[in-house]
Amino acid sequence: MTARASVLYDVPGPRARARYRAFGVLGALGIAALLWYAVAQLAEHGQFSAQMWAPFEYTAVQQRILDGVRDTLTAFGLAAVLSLVLGVLLAAGRLSDHRPVRWAASGVVEFFRAMPLLIMIFALYQAVFSARPLWALVLGLGLYNGAVQAEIIRGGVNAVPRGQSEAGYALGLRKSQLMATVLVPQAVRAMLPAMIGQLVVTLKDTSLGFVITYTELLYVGKLIAGNTSTPQGYPYIPVVLVIAPIYIALCLALTALARWIESRGRRGTNRRTPAPA
């Protein structure tokens, strides 16, 4: 990679390049040493022994992990839909012309944004959904992320240039028409990356289902680890090494989607931007 000037550094000359290379070699050695140490520690404590990894050879266990992924995605899908619907409603409330509606919506949004998700999910689980942890999880996730999505959407609507709404009113649109046909489409387009970013958070937070015994991926992992006894103890580390990449891959896939949509959006706006006068 060719070095470019940044806020912090000039384009390196020959001596600086040599120095960077030296630092690079040192850094690489340091990182390699750290990695080697970590792997050696794991190996020394028998974390790579065959018994530790044997459970993953059983079809039943593999099926269990797949079921865990399915349950995680189910909770995520339901929570995502709920949070988006709620987000739109709350954003509409916060942008309302009627003061009581605005206050109510602001109160709801501020409250749920400030609440720890776990506290909410646990209260819902204990009070209402003791038998159906899925719904406690979905409702908790939906309320919290709905409040956040509402703020994102509201920010997007407010960021649309004022001339747009003035033009709409001048054409005789009512406020609801203006919202639906002019402001919200532009806001959603501008805010889509942020909204998908919040969906990634939603996906990660489904792992809170672990605490209320919903059979999502992490809970399944704990069951697998807890049910397998080997001479070296329970295989918690192998389970983490299997489950973490699944979560990371799911999140990265969503992030990649956000980036793709963002690049598409930019292409679209460029096409429409008139040449500077």
Binding site: E44, Q47, V200, K222, Y236, V240, A244
Partner: peptide, 22 residues
């Protein structure tokens, strides 16, 4: 990328149950 995309609950799980194993 690893730490941002791992659920916090999983990190807690890894630290609490993983570290005693080594």
């Amino acid at each position: 990328e690893i730490f941002r995309n791992t659920p916090l609950t999983l990190l807690f799980f890894a630290v609490t149950f993983g570290l005693p194993r080594v």
